[in-house]
């Protein structure tokens, strides 16, 4: 039989365990951003609050890109328009391996396998955009970022740099249907993203998303500005 004193210590220990648990839970809850109900339909495919960590397996199983830092990533005008008329951004899906088949002619993307994005009407798109702009994780990355003047780069030099010297075109398209498919298309990137996002992502993808599949190529500030200048050219000199 347990003595009275032993029972007492067990009770105290149990209580302290519960207290620790409650404390942990509340600190976790406070850390997460409050998320508008309107985004609940998105959660089946997107992370709308910051996960405490993500494993490689979880990254490979992800269906849509993370949205928990949407307020620091997109341009509101682009976002509202895209939600009403979504175009393909990831030509091979958010993790290419889920949609790739091996054939005698080499690996190909099963396009029929890709998600057709839900379409919102104008009012929904406005409300969702407002809700997404409250999601501001990663603010510390862009807070003190110095942005020099972004000059347009000639189409020819820009393309040479993007393809040959920096190798971005192995994974990204700089024109519709032209370029690698494992990463998101970049020919609308300049309208899609905030400038501070573009610059800091190129400098360090893992700062935004520890399990980003994009390698950090240790680009110098000047290189980044040239690449962004090329993306600017692409968006402003559209045929």
């Amino acid at each position: 039989m347990l003595s009275e004193a032993k029972l007492m210590t067990i009770k105290i220990n149990l209580l302290s365990m519960i207290a620790t648990f409650v404390m942990l839970m509340t600190t976790m809850a406070v850390k997460a951003n409050p998320v508008d109900g309107i985004l609940s339909d998105c959660m089946a495919c997107h992370a709308v609050s910051e996960p405490s960590e993500m494993t490689l397996d979880e990254r490979m199983k992800r269906i849509g890109p993370s949205l928990f830092y949407a307020g620091n990533k997109y341009q509101a005008i682009w976002l509202e328009k895209w939600l009403q008329n979504p175009t393909r951004l990831f030509p091979a899906g958010v993790y290419y391996g889920e949609h790739t088949v091996v054939t005698d002619e080499g690996d190909i993307v099963l396009e029929t396998d890709l998600v057709t994005h839900p379409k919102l009407d104008q009012q929904q798109a406005q409300e969702v955009t407002r809700a997404l702009f409250k999601l501001k994780a990663n603010s510390e990355i862009v807070a003190d970022l110095e942005v020099g003047e972004i000059k347009k780069v000639s189409q020819r030099m820009g393309s040479l740099n993007f393809r040959k010297f920096k190798g971005c075109a192995s994974c990204h398209q700089d024109a519709e249907g032209d370029g690698g498919v494992s990463g998101p298309e970049l020919y609308t990137a300049f309208e899609r993203f905030q400038l501070t996002y573009l610059i800091s992502y190129m400098q360090n993808p893992q700062a935004w998303e520890p399990k980003s599949l994009m390698p950090n190529q240790h680009l110098k500030q000047k290189d980044v500005e040239k690449l962004v200048g090329y993306l600017k050219t692409l968006s402003e000199d559209k045929p």
Binding site: Y95, Y96, G97, E105, G106, D107, V109, A169, G180
Partner: peptide, 26 residues
């Protein structure tokens, strides 16, 4: 698993050098 995550996009799911990106690589 690491190979499937990071390398197969260029080197191919089976490592034969024919990944989904090669059409556009010099």
């Amino acid at each position: 698993k690491l190979y499937q995550a990071y390398c197969a996009q260029c080197h191919g799911m089976e490592g034969d050098g024919y990944g989904i990106n090669v059409e556009f690589m010099e």
